Amino acid sequence: MIVLPTPVREAILERAREGDPEEICGVLGGEYEPDGRSRVRSQYPATNVAETPRTRYEIDPEEQLAIFDRIEDRGREIVGFYHSHPRGPPRPSATDAARATWPDRSYLIVSLEPLAVGSWRWRTAADGVDAPGDRFEREDLVVE
């Protein structure tokens, strides 16, 4: 489960609307719990540097490290990442799964058509879960 404050949700939705038709992206900071419950405290917008930003997102590695440092300096942890699918569903694409690299972290996905927000945890075979291979698992999203 991931707990997302309403103001953070609204800020991400506003960025997605402003970024349309391109995907927007960023990092979620807060309290990460390996048992599967995390609480977002803030979102850190990032520039989408993908070659095809209408259908992909990529955070510049240097910008990502700077965001990680900011999160750490504030005494928080990396809860996960977010991006938008302006014309797609709020679930991971095959490309999202191929590029996921943070085990047990949340990947929040915003869809503008239809307007929806979904969250998924990236699980790897090393997680000790019975299902084979690396995959996304839908997680409960609580907005408060």
Rank of each mutant, 00 (worst) to 15 (best):
V110Q: 02
A46R: 01
R123C: 09
R41V: 01
L65R: 15
L13R: 10
A94Q: 11
R105K: 15
L108W: 05
E18W: 10
E62R: 09
D73A: 15
I12P: 02
S93A: 04
G19P: 03
G30R: 08
A126G: 14
R17T: 00
E18N: 11
E77V: 10
R70I: 04
L4R: 11
F81G: 01
T124E: 13
W122F: 15
I2F: 04
A116W: 05
F68R: 02
Y82F: 08
E63H: 07
P92W: 09
R37V: 14
T95A: 10
C25A: 13
D140N: 06
R87V: 05
F81N: 03
I67H: 04
R39G: 00
T95W: 01
I24Y: 00
G29M: 09
D60W: 01
I78K: 11
Y32C: 11
G29F: 15
W102Y: 15
P5N: 08
G128Q: 12
R74T: 13
L65P: 01
Y44D: 13
G19C: 07
A50Q: 05
D20P: 00
E139P: 00
A125F: 05
R41I: 01
T95M: 02
E31S: 02
L112S: 01
G19I: 06
F81P: 00
R99G: 00
T47H: 13
A66E: 06
R121K: 10
P21N: 14
L108M: 08
L115H: 02
P132I: 08
E51V: 00
D140V: 03
E10Q: 15
P132H: 11
F136K: 06
R121M: 15
L4C: 09
S93F: 06
G80L: 14
V8Q: 12
L4V: 11
G133T: 10
V143R: 12
P7H: 13
S38A: 04
